[in-house]
Design a protein around this nucleic acid. Structure first.
Length: 131
DNA sequence: GCCAACGTTGGC
DNA sequence: GCCAACGTTGGC
């Protein structure tokens, strides 16, 4: 079991949008590091959904229901997507809280603010999912 | 709206 | 292979 954090702008696609669907392809990722992370995902891996923009907080938990496959229309460029499914909303940590937490200073969310798909360890996943 | 961080592109 | 120019992301 691996743990991840996925960033999204809620105006574009929110956790609430995810809840309304059976599952959803996580596509449009155009960053190699993020893509490589997606390719490591396995069925049942847990993903925190983080809203960037105004909210800047972890808002829900999802799970991987389909491992990496070529993104439709982007096969030549080797971009991939995965499918996820909402598990439950959560009142997770805000960016502000993350910054103030001494044990979370090294997570990619702070270290690499632009990375949209990043790994977490279990401990960090648990902390981030509850504020 | 601005800007810092960062990735990509293209000229050399 | 280097680096300037440029585009994008995301926080402020």
């Amino acid at each position: 079991m691996q743990y991840w954090l996925l960033k999204t702008e809620p105006e574009t696609f929110s956790f609430n949008d995810l809840v309304q669907r059976e599952s959803e392809p996580w596509d449009g990722v155009r960053n190699y590091q993020a893509r490589n992370n997606m390719q490591k995902m396995e069925l049942g891996d847990k993903c925190l959904i983080y809203h960037s923009g105004k909210e800047k907080a972890v808002v829900g938990i999802a799970e991987v229901v389909k491992t990496a496959y070529p993104e439709p229309g982007m096969e030549k460029e080797n971009w991939v997507c995965i499918d996820i499914k909402a598990l439950n909303p959560c009142s997770g940590m805000s960016l502000e809280e993350v910054k103030q937490h001494p044990d979370l200073q090294n997570i990619p969310l702070l270290k690499q603010s632009r990375l949209s798909v990043m790994p977490l360890d279990e401990k960090d996943f648990l902390m981030l999912s509850a504020s």
